[in-house]
Design a protein around this nucleic acid. Structure first.
Lengths: 262, 262
DNA sequence: CGAGTAGTTGACATCTCTCAATGCCGGTGG
DNA sequence: CCACCGGCATTGAGAGATGTCAACTACTCG
């Protein structure tokens, strides 16, 4: 529940500060560098060479905990950081004048948020934690500077942005030409794959977002989301209990998504 | 009408080759460099410093004519170029297995197409000319190399990609939470602004795309597009004659777009 | 001149939305 | 400890918007 609505300004410190108490330890320094992060193959460093990785390790950035309901940034906030999710779940959304909200994405561990701010120097969307989460706030200017000296590293950044573009492509496809069942199937299959890539079950998971948020993301009302969940359960494709979902018949789910039933 | 369905492989030549017949001219060389292009303030060089512009002028790229219905690239084609529209109109689209098409964008003079290919090294969408057009095929690898030496120039590229992300954000908003009238109003206002930025009338223009293509882009059927045009005409907001559109009441159109009527 | 394409319009079907009632759960305070 | 409240989810009934199918016109191209 979003109790704390206030936007929390990023605390710009180095990782050393976060681990102040241990800095005098005689053994290896506390590892909060990208190269030793367990998410390195999914996150920012994905696809980087060893030398790029070394470069990246010189980058100082803050780790932050974000409580459920807290915002990372809002529409119009100055763009300074991109955020890597270490743990938890976040959502990004856009607002229309009249208050209608459109969720533009959900982000889990190893994914990057905030790239939309580059164009205008200000964020075009708002991002909020759906559960207690932890993020790395990476100063984009520093990252750019680093990349300026290594074209291969620059390429990684470019690819990250392009990936965001293709991600949105799929969502447009979904919003533009699918019915409710196809939308929900696409959503669940996408989540399933992302969990699988992180070593979690691809068949059973806990949704961190409400029916209303799923609906906003998929361009339908919460009641329609709920009904579609029920329909899938009726058909023996899913077992649903509130936010807990088990995919019983993966093939059938994929079939819903791929083929125009009607 | 898309008669020529065959994909035309990019002709990789330098601008000199294109103007072969004039290369011996004693006067100034034929200007096909970005710095002297009449679209420079809208297109790739937008926001570049003088020195970046000089750099950019060393880039060799081909100009190509594309006939109506010809494709520039298709889904899955190897990513080599980004394309700057010099004249005419293009559309990009995605395909679902069952043949459903989702138009993901329309592009006019000064706009860039093809950035979606960076992530995978292959294009995620297909792009086709809606009328006889002319484009610059810019080798992305060369452009990256150029930018590697100048961080300000790198920043321009990054910004272009981010702009594409925010563009798609708006489309998602549209597809996810607007009704037919709001969608068409948003579409026309967007076109109007883009024409205005190019020195054309913002009130009267000729649509280069069919009702079906507009519908696909906006996530509705062609009949609904047609009916919505008629409705706007009834209301005295537009005058429509096939593809010729005149905006009679700009304020009313903006009102449709901004406010939830219902 | 005939065929084909694009656009408009009507009648009807269908899907999703809207509104409303209900149940469930967790947190809070008497 | 339990009653109450608020938020979330489910479900039903009916309304409304958009999709579907079909007919007709206008225009273009051989």
């Amino acid at each position: 529940m979003p109790t704390a609505i206030a936007s929390v300004p990023p605390v710009v410190t180095t990782v050393q500060v976060v681990h102040r108490g241990l800095s005098a330890s005689p053994v290896a320094p506390v590892k909060t560098q990208c190269s030793s992060c367990h998410l390195r193959d999914l996150c920012l460093p994905c696809g980087m060479s060893g030398s790029d990785m070394d470069r990246l390790d010189t980058l100082k950035f803050a780790r932050r905990k974000v409580k459920a309901g807290q915002t990372l940034y809002r529409e119009g906030d100055r763009f300074q950081f991109i955020y890597a999710v270490r743990a938890g779940t976040l959502k990004s959304s856009l607002m229309l004048q009249d208050g209608r909200e459109q969720v533009s994405g959900f982000y889990i561990a190893g994914e990057l948020v905030g790239l939309d701010g580059v164009a205008q120097g200000a964020h075009a969307s708002a991002t909020m934690a759906l559960e207690d989460s932890e993020i790395c706030a990476i100063p984009f200017a520093h990252l750019s500077d680093l990349a300026a000296g290594a074209s291969s590293m620059q390429h990684v950044i470019t690819r990250l942005m392009s990936r965001e573009i293709t991600r949105e492509h799929s969502l447009m496809m979904l919003l533009g030409s699918m019915n409710a069942e196809e939308r929900l199937a696409a959503f669940l299959l996408n989540l399933s794959q992302r969990y699988a890539a992180r070593g979690y079950s691809d068949r059973e998971f806990h949704l961190r977002m409400s029916r209303a948020e799923i609906g906003s993301y998929l361009g339908m009302k919460l009641e329609t989301v709920s009904r579609t969940f029920s329909a899938f359960q009726q058909l023996g494709i899913l077992e649903v209990d509130k936010r807990h979902v088990r995919i019983v018949d993966m093939e059938a789910l994929k079939h819903r998504f791929n083929v125009r039933v009607h």
